[in-house]
Amino acid sequence: MIPFTTLAGIAAPFPDADVDTDIIFPARFLLLLDKEGLGKHLFHDRRWREDGSAVIDFVLNRPPFDRARILVAGPRFGSGSSREQAVWTLADFGIRCVIAPSFGEIFFANCPKTGVLPVIAGAADHAALMEAARRGETVQVDLETQRVTWPGGSFAFEVEEHRRRSLLQGLDEIGMVLADDTADIAAFERQRAARTPWLEITGGAGRIVAGDGPA
């Protein structure tokens, strides 16, 4: 995982409410098989016309926001589908922090996996930051001290401890679980087999096995 400690850069103001993952990354690009190179499709249908030319007044097409590292977004940002491509496209564009009043839950959980920090901001802080972003000010996000700072103000934010720690250290969560918890997992599986044996999947009538062909 990509670590996140501090970040300073241009913050793009994007106050629209309900920017769902279909707006962030339209479904037809979900056919692409890789994580890399998705940044050009970020907000695709708002950002590019059908002939491929830029929508010039879209925020990410205007300097200095075309090199934004932070997005100051509206309420319920990232609601809708679970597609992690919505995070990969932001990261590939260069945005490593999204600050909004609220988020879609799955999007919120997906962000740290690619080193993107989602920050929930209260109404007054959010409004002040949105103004600073509009002025093109440099915004600083510090995960160690859990503060967002800009020339005219700052606020503190909360983050769940395990998310904070894995972001700061860029931890490999799967590796950690495999190293620390494999014995517990095996013990749980034995317990499950005794208590709710029907949850064990074994071969049998009508069950699908690997390589099963058309019926």
Partner: peptide
Amino acid sequence: GASECEMVFAT
């Protein structure tokens, strides 16, 4: 999300 799918695959 996809990263969580990977976690479930492995663990």
